[in-house]
Design a protein around this nucleic acid. Structure first.
Lengths: 253, 253
DNA sequence: GACAACGGTCTGATATACCGGACAACAACA
DNA sequence: TGTTGTTGTCCGGTATATCAGACCGTTGTC
């Protein structure tokens, strides 16, 4: 439906081709055949073949045994360079591990990426539920508890200017009331945390607290994703732990 | 001395410029100023500026507050995609965490990358010693314990063909005797592990065991890096743990 | 066996990306 | 104040990267 791929003109710059190629791989989160890549990017066949071979030589991409293409070692190296260099991520990792270990729940560090919400770090509980994390997957802000925290303190105009109209429609087709959403954000800000149930997925309960960096809006959120069956006291416990952890991560600047 | 950067001809392909640009960033492991990037890559000024801005827009690079350039979020996403998708890495991570937690030592998963040795995963002990990991940094094979394990089972010719002549010279300037090295590998193979002391760095003791995937040479090694002051029984304990862990990671195929 | 779909390589023409170099803003310094 | 170095933007010519399409081997289907 939505042509997410850059409907690029013919004779595009190689670098742009490379970028859209990698973006497609990230979207699919699975190795892709050359054919799929060609169709997904809209790039000419010969260009895709050439670029893939260039990138493979550099270790940016790898070809699996069945001829599919996916990210290679180099990306792993570069990604770790980024994560190691990023202050917040580096400090958050051990904290999140401890949270996950202690409560055996999935802990996430979430941030805004442009006008979308995204998971930056994911730490699973012991039970290895999901095989691949969803780090870097962009989700409309109104769909999430964290989104409500991250918008805290923003002006009404800035908020509406930021969020695309269509992002207020849930996967179910239901539309989120804008006024209610704004009120939600305000009460979230006062309360200091957000908790949503069955917003995107009907079995999950999401709780998020802000992580600050200096004054201004929250830099990130720390959150638990738990089953809806968790009872009240359990939720209290988890929230308290989140608050404490986020406090240790926040910096007054 | 060694011109590691691709002394590329003028009017090079943009994609190649991008590749060498990122490689330089990875080598430096620190944000770089435009000037440094220009000098390191040998690319024209205008090209670097243009490419950096293209890549920044895509989130591949980011500019720090002081105008330096480093990897961006996108790399983090792609890198995690790679690591999540890679069977060995995914399985190794929890195992390594447990090892590090139990013994409070640095655990690493190492592999060959071309004709070099490199760390693929690094799990620090509790004491946060080194601020940035060395994942993806290429090191001559003969400098390491893991290298000796990884070469196990290779023919003499293949080995000598693989390793560049200059890689037998240690950072200290000392030259590693080739015959001794080959004998070392053979005894390592028989023994089932390698242990080196003060090879690259005089304070460390490195112990490595192979991780197999099907028949043939080891796919990777699992290793501890400990202080040389660790006594005999401690070393035995650690080795036993490594062996057990590597066994759980290896697959008969 | 004929036909179609697919997977990959190769080549030549041409649109354009890349680069040299000009330009401006700013700082350091004598 | 003039000189020198650095940081960044912009522009036009031309070397060349990109792309259309031909080509070939393989696979599957009727």
């Amino acid at each position: 439906m939505s042509r997410s791929n850059t409907t690029s003109s013919p004779r595009a710059r190689g670098v742009d081709r490379v970028i859209s190629l990698c973006e497609q791989l990230h979207l699919h989160r699975q190795p892709m055949t050359p054919k799929e890549l060609i169709e997904a990017t809209g790039a000419p066949r010969s260009s895709v073949y050439e670029l893939v071979s260039l990138l493979s030589e550099a270790g940016w991409l790898e070809t699996t045994s069945d001829g599919r293409i996916f990210f290679g070692r180099a990306m792993h190296y570069f990604g770790l360079d980024y994560a190691d260099h990023n202050d917040l991520l580096r400090r958050a990792r051990p904290v999140m591990r401890q949270l996950s270990a202690r409560f055996d729940e999935t802990t996430q560090l979430c941030m805004l990426d442009g006008d979308k919400y995204t998971v930056m770090l994911n730490e699973n509980g012991a039970r290895p539920f999901r095989i691949s994390s969803e780090v870097g997957v962009k989700v409309p802000i109104p769909w999430t508890a964290s989104g409500r925290v991250l918008l805290g303190g923003m002006s009404r105009e800035a908020m509406l200017g930021l969020i695309p109209e269509e992002d207020f429609v849930l996967p179910s087709g239901e539309r989120i009331d804008i006024e209610g959403f704004i009120a939600d954000i305000e009460s979230t800000r006062r309360r200091g945390y957000a908790m949503t149930e069955g917003l995107v997925d009907s079995f999950a309960c999401c709780m998020a607290v802000p992580v600050y960096e200096g004054a201004g809006p929250a830099r990130a959120t720390l959150c638990f994703t738990v089953g809806r069956d968790a009872d009240e006291t359990r939720r209290e416990t988890l929230l308290a732990a989140l608050r404490e952890a986020s406090c240790s991560l926040s910096s007054g600047e």
